[in-house]
Design a protein around this nucleic acid. Structure first.
Lengths: 146, 146
DNA sequence: TTCAGCAATAGGAGTTATTCCTATCTTATG
DNA sequence: CATAAGATAGGAATAACTCCTATTGCTGAA
């Protein structure tokens, strides 16, 4: 069929294991930077570039998934299955939507475009509970002392 | 309700008019950089920062829409109505899907999250005809001279 | 158990896309 | 025409990556 990928022997190093473990613990879908912050508590000498490289490697390896959500930063997910997301328009936080993806959508849309369709993404936009709370606090303090 | 926005008198300057006109001509959904390239042919002294600022202003003004698609760059659209998109996984090009958005989706998903849902985005991923063609050419030239 | 060789790392430089800053220029109005 | 708010060009600054290099660390064959 096509050329076999250059087979390098990937190693489960300490850095990679810790990154994977911490990613698993986080319920949300952190950015590389956020992963770096938590991993640093266990491996203080790890470098940000290692975090980026290892997250990419773990993606290729199929152990982690890269989310290309509608914002500049890359988000990573321990759960590699296809699923939909909610994103907070204020803080950018991303979380899962507990629902099975609609596989029929791609089929239904295939005739609407001359692209060779390979997948789809559905993203709910909203305000997360924390940001909503902050917003209300701000409004209140404004009313009290304008 | 809430504070009225600080009312500044926005001006339809030459730069803004040209940006708007060129954006209207482009069928795809260009990035700021692509807008800059075409606008430069009519206004050679325009600066990239003006393009960014004016695109943002035109968005606030409701004359242009910012698309936050699943890739690092910002894309802009002359058509400000809600609609879905296809994106090329290779080159990042974005185009419209000629279909009415499914307004019921938000309602249906509302109970699945504690976010205050304000919208949703649906994006088909695929390979655009041009990238598909290039891919096939590469494959062919590989077979001929390996 | 040593060692050759590939893989991985830390640290920092480089890149890309975007935003910010400032001195200067425009333009609508009085 | 004066003038003041609004815009602009040009470049510096920033954010989020991505790449480079010298060094370190595994790992499997001898």
């Amino acid at each position: 069929m096509s050329d076999p990928p250059p087979k390098r022997r990937l190693r489960m190093t300490r850095q990679r294991r810790v990154i994977l473990e911490e990613l698993k613990k986080l319920k949300a879908h952190p950015t590389a930077d956020e992963v770096y912050e938590v991993v640093r508590e266990r491996l203080p000498r790890i470098s940000l570039s290692t975090v980026y490289r290892d997250l990419e490697t773990l993606c290729e390896w199929g152990k982690v998934r890269l989310l290309e959500v509608g914002c500049a930063k890359k988000h990573f997910d321990y759960d590699t299955r296809d699923h939909y997301h909610v994103r907070c328009a204020r803080c950018g936080r991303v979380e899962n939507l507990p629902v099975e993806p609609f596989t029929y959508l791609e089929q239904a849309f295939r005739d609407l475009t001359d692209y060779e369709v390979t997948g789809h993404k559905l993203e709910l936009i909203g305000i997360c509970p924390e940001c909503k709370r902050k917003e209300e606090e701000e409004k209140k303090s404004k009313e009290e002392a304008p």
